[in-house]
Amino acid sequence: MDQAKIKELKKISYDIKLGAIEAVYSANSGHPGGSLSISDILAYLYFNEMNVDPKDPDCVDRDRFVLSKGHCAPALYSVLSLKGFFPREDLKTFRQADSYLQGHPDMKHTPGVDMTSGSLGLGISAACGMALAAKYCGKTYRVWAVMGDGELGEGQCWEAALFAAHYKLDNLCAFVDDNGLQIDGPTKEVMNTESIADKFRAFNWNVVEIDGHDMEAIEAAVELAKVTKGKPTMVVAHTIKGKGVSYMENSCGWHGKAPNAEEYAQAVAELEAAKAELDK
C-alpha cells in the first residue's frame, strides 16, 4: 500500500469519525468512544478490502461484515453512508423514532447492515454461521467481524471461538477492538480478558496483534488472514478509545455519552484539523 492510499484511507477514517460524532450529537445519545477506536479498521475493510456494492446490498456473493460490538453503530452507519448505502445526511436521524438508523444495527431496515447486533457475544456467532454457509455452499465470500475486548466477557464469544476453530472457518476474520476500557472501568480491573492473543491461540485460531490505527498493519493482518488455511484469524487490534478527539481519548466516561454543543464543536474542529494535516 503506497503513501497516497494510506492517506486516502486515513481521510476516510476521519470522515467516519466525523459522521459518527455527528450522529451521536444529533441523537444526544449513543456510543462515541468505541466508534472512534474502530474507524481505521472500518475504513480499511470497506474501502480497501470488502467486495460490497451499495447498488446491490443483498448480493449473495458479497463479503459480510458483522459488528459484534453493535453499540458502535455510529461508526458503521458512517462508513456505510460514505460507501453510498444511504444518504450521509440521514446520520442526523440516528436513534430517532422515525429513523431506520436504530441505536444498534438492524439488518431489516438498514441497507448494508449484514446482521442485527447489539446484544454482546451474538454477532461473532452469526459471523460463524455466515462463514459456515459459505464453506458448505462453495461460496468464496469472506466474513469480517469486529468485537470488543469487554465483549469477550460474554461466554458466547468463547463458544464461537471453539466453533470457528472446530469447523476450520478460515474464511472468517475477527478483530478485537482492544481499547482496554469498558463501561465500568479499565477492562483489566472490571474483568480481565488479557491475554486475548494467548487465549485465541489456545483456541486454535491464527492470531496477529497489531496497532489498530496503523493502516499498513491492518493491511498485513488482513492479507495474512486471507492466506491462512484451516484456521480462523483473530486480529487483536490495540486501539485508543475515543481516538482522534482529545478529551474522549482513553476515557471510560465517553463510552456511551453524547457531547454537548461546545464539546461537539471542539471534536469537529480537532477531527477536521487532523484530516487537513494529512495533506500538508
Partner: peptide
C-alpha cells in the same frame, strides 16, 4: 446465532 448467520 450460527443458525441465524446461516439464515442471513
Amino acid at each position: 446465532l450460527v443458525a441465524a448467520g446461516i439464515a442471513t
